[in-house]
């Protein structure tokens, strides 16, 4: 079932003194329930503009974005329903949780705002959410964000995103601020949740390696245009577009590096 549709979306910014900048140029793609799409691109490729359009910080100059067949509503009950179905996981787990509030508060609010469970069951639901992201509710529930590690915070942020039982998760570089050794854990958690709940996930990243393993399909963006798309392994292992090839060649790849006998100054570097 088609969950999210980008239909010929263009976004043009007027820049004072510099005319216009086309951040997105005729971008179209669809995302099905239970599917993960990796949006790969460098800074300025337009991938963050897509996130901004989805979170309504920006509106497309032309084209349409549809969730479940409906255009993004501007206000009222439709907007509420849209927000309930689409949730964000932000890049920086230090900044995305309010330092003043407890973990319990962070998870309780979406439950109450969208009336997910009756008030009497809120506490149990908060605990269930924490367990879902592999955190011990007894330990973390009444802590404040600064008492947790980066990885724990990002898990809390994921639990918060899941609280309203959304259909689509937009994950904007969810692991790039985390230590290398815990990235895989967080990505595996996201993959598990996605499989179990049939979530659609839009994974926005600059990192080809995680995009390849975490996504079903990859869209490569360059200067606002989709230059290549396809199944994740195809795009990364057998890139067709010159820009994708360039990205792939520039990304660290120890397997290829050590397979070639050329050594440190050989072709790979």
């Amino acid at each position: 079932m088609t969950l999210l549709e980008f239909d010929a979306v263009t976004k043009v910014y007027a820049v004072r003194g510099a005319g216009h900048i086309t951040a997105l140029d005729d971008v179209s793609f669809t995302l099905r329930s239970g599917q993960t799409i990796g949006l790969v691109g460098q800074s300025g490729s337009g991938k963050s503009t897509i996130a901004k359009i989805l979170t309504q910080l920006e509106t497309p100059t032309s084209g349409e974005v549809r969730l479940d067949g409906r255009a993004i509503p501007r206000r009222g009950a439709g907007l509420r329903a849209y927000r309930q179905q689409l949730r964000m996981v932000f890049q920086d787990p230090f900044a995305s949780l309010n330092p003043y509030h407890s973990i319990r508060y962070h998870l309780q609010r979406p439950l109450r705002l969208d009336r997910i469970v009756p008030k009497s069951e809120e506490d149990a639901e908060v605990r269930r959410l924490l367990e879902r992201v592999r955190l011990d509710p007894g330990v973390v529930i009444d802590r404040r964000p600064h008492e947790l590690s980066g990885g724990q915070r990002q898990r809390v942020a994921i639990a918060r995103a899941l609280a309203s039982r959304p259909k689509l998760l937009v994950a904007d570089e969810p692991v790039s601020m985390l230590d290398v050794s815990i990235r895989l854990g967080v990505l595996n958690l996201l993959a598990d949740l996605q499989r179990e709940e049939g979530l659609g996930v839009l994974y926005i990243t600059h990192d080809l390696a995680t995009a390849r393993h975490f996504s079903d399909e990859i869209l490569v963006l360059n200067q606002g245009r989709v230059v290549e798309r396809g199944p994740a392994d195809d795009v990364i292992l057998n890139p067709q577009h010159p820009y994708t090839q360039e990205l792939r060649a520039a990304s660290p790849d120890p397997d290829a590096h050590f397979a070639s006998a050329s050594g440190i100054d050989g072709g790979a570097l």
């Binding site: 910080l57 927000r83 949730r87 932000f90 900044a95 309010n98 609010r109 705002l113 918060r160």
Partner: peptide, 21 residues
């Protein structure tokens, strides 16, 4: 800041964003 953006994305009403967040 992200946590204010997150509160808005959750659909928190304006008065709560200002007074509570």
């Amino acid at each position: 800041r992200d946590f204010i953006q997150a509160a808005r994305a959750n659909g928190e009403p304006l008065r709560r964003i200002i007074t509570v967040e």
